[in-house]
Amino acid sequence: MRRYNGELIHASRDEHGPIEIVEDSRVRSLHFGSRSRQSALFLDRPEALVLAYTQSMMAALLLHAAPRRVLLVGLGGGSLARFLLHHYPDCQIDAVELRPRVVELAHGYFRLPEDDARLNIIPGEGRHFLTHAALRHSDYDLILVDAFHGTGMAEEVAEADFFAAARGRLADEGALAVNLWQQPAQRLRRTLTGLQDAFAGRCLQLPVPTRGNLVALASTRPVPPDLATAWDLRAHALSRFTGLDFPGFLEGLAEANSAS
């Protein structure tokens, strides 16, 4: 059966709605009842990031280039986890995912390892975890937030109290990356204001080219005023290391934040 320009290989439903997996000759994709892809896997390169917004989220490495502890809020098919486990073999990852069925499918269809001691999957809602988790779930070098459902960004990860709680879980030199949607504009402005307040203005925006996504980055440390100069060497080193276009990310950051 054809679906979203591919072959439908799985369809199910949980209390939050439909879950579909579609495959073509190169890519397997996760959908939550709409054409929007929630996660994707190159069948011949499972460690690579397919979707532009997931690539842009890794611009957080410009703020912290060698993470040892990472928190993922929203697992999806596990794209970010696979990427980090491949490139940072000493990294310990906690991943909070609301939907148990999504976790099952990430293991079954998206090659997310089930028995890797470096990956700890925690069932539940991201804001509740950040607010109530034990003290050992702190001092993260990176927190990466990608919590979407079929119709847009999850409300609970777009509020000021969520960002304040995330700030409290970061290490002294930690950084946050959040996948946002640019519409509706009023909601985006409110979300960005909450992020700015939580991080004392130490925030950057990275629009995802040709997409409606906007990646927001926030740091516990001051952001250099001249990004292009301060992070040029780091961007090229990260590009060689990961294969991602970090000089392009840096150019986008410099352009989008030139007036701030």
Rank of each mutant, 00 (worst) to 15 (best):
G33W: 15
E173A: 09
T131Q: 07
P113V: 02
M58A: 13
E7S: 09
R211K: 14
S34V: 14
L75H: 13
V96W: 03
Y88T: 01
L135G: 03
A59H: 12
S56E: 14
A134F: 01
G201S: 08
D161Y: 08
Q92E: 03
I19L: 15
I9V: 14
L250W: 11
R26M: 09
R26G: 10
L195A: 12
F249P: 05
L112K: 04
D115E: 07
G174D: 10
A254H: 12
R136G: 00
R169Y: 15
L85G: 02
E255L: 15
A158V: 06
A59F: 07
N5K: 12
P123H: 06
L144I: 12
H64P: 02
V27Q: 08
E155R: 10
I121Y: 00
F199P: 00
R99E: 00
G76I: 14
C91F: 03
G126S: 07
G152K: 06
I21H: 05
L119S: 05
P46V: 03
H107L: 04
L188K: 10
N120Y: 00
A48D: 15
R127E: 04
S258N: 08
L51S: 10
N179V: 12
L49G: 05
A166E: 10
R3K: 13
L204Q: 11
F129P: 06
R111D: 09
R37P: 03
L142P: 02
R3M: 07
E47S: 15
D172N: 06
N5T: 07
S36M: 14
T191Y: 11
L142S: 02
A60P: 11
A154Y: 01
I19S: 08
I93V: 04
L188M: 13
M57V: 06
L98C: 02
C203W: 09
W231L: 15
M153S: 06
S12W: 12
Y140Q: 07
F199H: 06
Q205Y: 04
L135D: 07
A147Q: 07
A65N: 03
G78M: 03
N5P: 04
E114D: 03
H87D: 04
G6F: 05
G243S: 12
L188H: 12
A259Q: 06
P207N: 14
S79R: 03
A66H: 14
W231N: 11
G108P: 00
H149F: 14
L98A: 02
L84R: 00
A175E: 04
R240Q: 13
A65M: 03
S29Q: 15
L85S: 04
H31W: 09
C91A: 01
W231E: 13
E255F: 13
P123Q: 03
P18L: 12
Y88D: 02
Y140V: 05
F42I: 02
P207R: 13
P100Y: 00
R99P: 00
V27L: 07
A158I: 06
L188Q: 09
A259P: 01
G243M: 11
V50E: 03
S56N: 15
A175T: 04
E15H: 06
T131R: 04
A106T: 01
Q55F: 07
R13A: 08
L41Q: 09
S25N: 09
V215W: 07
L43P: 05
G124Y: 00
H137T: 01
G194L: 10
G150E: 01
P225F: 08
V145N: 06
R69F: 10
